[in-house]
Design a protein around this nucleic acid. Structure first.
Lengths: 247, 247
DNA sequence: CGTCAGGTTGATGCCATTCAACTTAGGTGG
DNA sequence: CCACCTAAGTTGAATGGCATCAACCTGACG
């Protein structure tokens, strides 16, 4: 059966980074929907079988990028949420640098390099928006370094939950104080550099102080302010600079 | 007195990422030398006084990018070594996201946004090379997340020293098994997320096993292979993908 | 020769890991 | 519809890696 590929989350997200006109949106949408693909839960994305890889976008579902050490230790270095681009910067890097995997069933697009470059050439507005999203990705990666390097377990988890909630919110995927949250505690451990056991206990702490409620696959944040201050969270890193005078 | 701004390290480094012709090099060099600047040890780079900021390159000396928490905890998220670009991706991000400071006296160039964009437009080869360097920077940032998230103190420090040695080597700044190493143990602590005391002890361990020798401002790595394996170091993340067939 | 930044050392304690067992929930086949 | 199975979550106890605190040492420099 033919799946409906819905590019809306990507368009919504990218619109945050530039004033995309109708024609920009249409061009991008049709390209994304042309190259839609599917993956199940806990599958690899971008393994060799795929042949020469292109630019990927997550249309729905959650994925992550991770790196591993020889002995099996694993670090999730980024989450890829609906609407987000996977790796504008990634072509040109040794593909063994890191790997991608899904956390849920995922619909994504993989646009061939050539087609995508043509698009960027024809629609410079899209190029500029994408450039900004890349800048934000870089900024997020720096924040993660700070997070695992300096924050204590309690702050660290709080920070991660804050970030995800806000990013989902940007994609229009929160409803009020709640959002879907399909990750396991094991994923949280790999992303924070903590042990599963300690993640479990720390989550209980956060729950007992009513900073979050997390059951089933649903996260609620009754008071975002309080969670942010528990996380020493500074929103600056998630948002582009205020109106940029330069062209 | 007029300082000699030598753009050679930048040109050498960038040449690793693309086949720059004589004319590319000349154009870039003259731009870099036009906008040279100076800083002393432990000074800020890119504070407000500088006005609207441009694209920065380190010509000589060491600097770092860091982030801090409200209570003073500090994480160095990147080192900026001679020849490296500071932040292609950075315009468009809230400037409070992170800060830059020098570790030694530094000579750098700060090319105004407009002038630089013109250069990239006229010399697409430079643009492509710079794009790849940015991709590597991103890759390095991911590796740092892995480093502080998963590696033990011993591996972590070994890894950092390895990386710096290899990056200096790329810039032509090593001679044999030694290189300059102006960082304090305090800087190492901030970069690894360890305490100064523990850095000190771990360095002693590394020394006692002859993996490094570090005295004065000089680092020697008698056996890079051994240091790499102690660090669980995989060089893939530092290098661009093998010859890229696509245009 | 005093001063100060950087480096070194020892003692102590906590945050987080590890190991191991147990519980719960969701899914599947008989 | 229940029995089984497996992944995920939870709990307790013991260990240890690394932080913290507080001295003390060293060398560079004015």
């Amino acid at each position: 059966m033919k799946v409906k590929f819905d590019a809306a989350p990507v368009l919504r997200k990218l619109s945050r980074y530039g004033d995309l006109r109708e024609e920009d949106l249409r061009a991008l949408r049709s390209l994304l929907e042309e190259f839609g693909r599917l993956r199940g839960t806990r599958e690899q994305i971008g393994a060799c079988e795929d042949g020469p890889c292109g630019i990927r976008f997550v249309l729905s579902g959650w994925a992550c990028r991770y790196k591993s050490l020889e002995d099996g230790r694993r670090q999730i270095v980024a989450f890829l949420l609906p609407g987000e681009v996977c790796d504008v910067c990634h072509s040109g890097i040794s593909p063994t640098d890191s790997a991608m995997a899904t956390l849920t069933p995922v619909v994504f697009s993989e646009v061939p390099q050539g087609r995508f470059e043509a698009l960027l050439h024809d629609f410079p507005t899209i190029a500029r928006a994408l450039w900004r999203e890349t800048a934000i990705d870089m900024s997020i990666q720096r924040e993660w370094t700070l997070n695992v390097g300096q924050r204590h377990a309690y702050e660290r988890l709080a920070h991660l939950l804050c970030e995800i909630f806000l990013r989902l919110n940007q994609a229009g995927l929160t409803s009020g104080i709640t959002c879907e949250f399909p990750m396991t505690q094991c994923d949280l451990a790999d992303a924070t550099g903590l042990s599963v056991v300690h993640v479990n206990r720390t989550l209980q702490e956060l729950r007992s102080e009513n900073l979050i409620s997390l059951q089933g696959k649903t996260l609620s944040v009754p008071n975002l302010q309080r969670l942010q201050s528990a996380a020493l969270f500074d929103t600056a890193y998630l948002y582009p600079a205020a109106a940029d005078a330069r062209a």
